[in-house]
Design a protein around this nucleic acid. Structure first.
Length: 423
RNA sequence: GGAGAGGUGGCCGAGCGGCCGAAGGCGCUUGCCUGCUAAGCAAGUGAGGGUUUAUACCCUCCGAGGGUUCGAAUCCCUCCCUCUCCGCCA
């Protein structure tokens, strides 16, 4: 959620931010008038309340002095005022609710570090690592590779659960498990993250605080008792500190956790329908930072490097893309997408998305810290995949495939896997 | 699922219709004191919002939402959460 105060003190910056995101500006004018109406309403009801409170204490005083007649008269007057207050409060509440419901749909302000642009074509590649391998044969897609070695089963997956599910078996199932373990090991032992095992279902207010709701309700799976399956471990990890005040010296907090993620993928009809690139349930190791405001930009660089380190250790070629303002997600002020090379598609594909959310979530979650000057301030939050496990598995399969249809196990995993080749 | 207890400031904890935004303690900040540390003494110390150049003033908040009342942390209702015991169970 954006800061209401900014709407009043610096409305142009809000306008600018919405423009950068290519948003319709009619909402902006509506917000401005609503904000004014809100303050008027507050003033009206508060001055009535002040009046009522002063009469109330006069009643108490009169009672004490046994001036019962006077007290009764004052009570009559106070009753009238009290009724007026009720009406004024009702109005204020209505305006407030309207304003809040609109505000929850306003995305975060883009960071200065995000290039201004319309869509993904304006994203800036800021880094390339590794060279895509030259194949002297036609590289297969991961689904063909998986089927050929009898380690992926899409037919039975759809029998069980419908489209966009995958079943892994044998060495690929094991590779998935080994990958999770590998990622967590790197992040906890080398990158200094604290590991969490988390609930996969959360309450509605948690989803809202995190910025997933109300705008993206279509994207989430809901249970019959109004719980939500988490779309990412970011949700429980960031919400750990909801409504908390964090000690100055405890910042930054660096958290990691592995969870499955559940997404309906509404609106992605026809996109990546084959294979396990875009599925309703996937495994992910998530990285979350909670920082002081002045450190979040630096933290994003570091978090992104932490995610990259996994790809480097696996020797998978990738590039890093700084998303333009038009392509930024709802919560993000700045985002680096890490894209891994997929030979069968002859393309880099997203495998991690690392975002600086600044105080946008901190405000919604009400997570604060006491600054050096003793002021309470909202923390900045950051999140990134470190990495999406399924897509890492795919990348390994495709990049490490051999001409005879096997998959070489990346050197760093060979010990854990116990084999040099799969298939 | 059944029975009971409870949710108060950064934390602990009192208050159970009107000088209660809330005693007391811990913590924290500042000053004094002491060779350092610790202890001791004194003062200060909740959050959000509104008005204001400012000093300052006002409103709201004691799990959430309603209700009773001139007035609610305190009384009533609903909901949520936590704990204890019992049942069921991986």
């Amino acid at each position: 959620m954006i800061d209401l105060k900014i709407l009043r003190t610096d409305p142009d910056s809000v306008k600018e931010a919405l423009k950068k995101r290519n948003m319709d500006l009619t909402i902006f004018n509506y917000l401005i008038t609503l904000e004014q109406k809100r303050r008027e309403a507050i003033n009206n009801s508060e001055s009535k309340k002040a009046e009522r409170n002063s009469i109330s204490s006069q009643i108490a005083a009169a009672r004490k002095n046994k001036e019962n007649g006077k007290a009764l008269e004052l009570q009559k007057k106070a009753k009238e005022i009290s009724n007026e207050v009720k009406i004024l409060d009702e109005e204020t509440k209505k305006i407030n609710e309207d304003l809040m419901s609109k505000l929850l749909y306003i995305p975060n302000f883009p960071s200065e570090n995000s290039p201004v642009g319309i869509d993904e074509n304006d994203n800036k590649v800021v880094k390339k690592w590794g060279e895509p391998r030259n194949f002297d044969f036609e590289p297969l897609a991961h689904w063909d590779l998986g089927l050929n070695i009898d380690s992926m089963d899409f037919e039975r997956a759809s029998k069980l659960s419908g489209s966009r599910f995958t079943i892994l078996k044998k060495q690929l199932a094991k590779l998935e498990r080994v990958l999770v373990n590998f990622m967590l090991k790197v992040h906890t032992e080398e990158n200094d993250y604290i590991e969490f095992a988390l609930p996969y279902m959360v309450k509605r207010d948690i989803m809202t605080a995190c910025g997933q709701l109300p705008k993206f309700e279509d994207e989430a799976y809901k249970t019959t008792d109004d719980m939500f399956l988490i779309p990412t471990a970011e949700v429980p990890l960031v919400s750990l500190h909801k409504n908390e005040i964090i000690e100055f010296n405890d910042l930054p907090l660096k958290y990691t956790g592995y969870t499955p993620c559940f997404r309906r993928e509404a609106g992605s009809y026809g996109k990546d329908v084959k294979g396990m690139i875009r599925v309703h349930q996937f495994d992910k190791v998530e990285l979350v930072w909670i920082t002081k405001p002045e450190n979040s930009d630096k933290a994003l660089e570091e978090l992104t490097l932490n995610a990259e380190s996994i790809l480097q250790k696996l020797n998978l070629p990738y590039r890093v893309v700084n998303l333009c303002t038009g392509d930024l997600g709802f919560n993000a002020a700045q985002t680096y997408d890490i894209e891994v090379w997929l030979p069968s598609q002859d393309k880099y594909r997203e495998i991690s998305s690392c975002s600086n959310v600044k105080d946008f979530q901190g405000r919604r979650e009400n997570i604060r810290f006491r600054d050096k000057d003793n002021e309470l301030k909202f923390v900045h939050t950051l999140n990134g995949s470190g990495l999406a496990v399924g897509r890492t598995l795919i990348a390994i399969m495709e990049n490490y495939q051999t001409e005879d249809g096997k998959i070489k196990v990346p050197e760093i995993l060979q010990n854990e896997m116990g084999v040099e080749y799969i298939g």
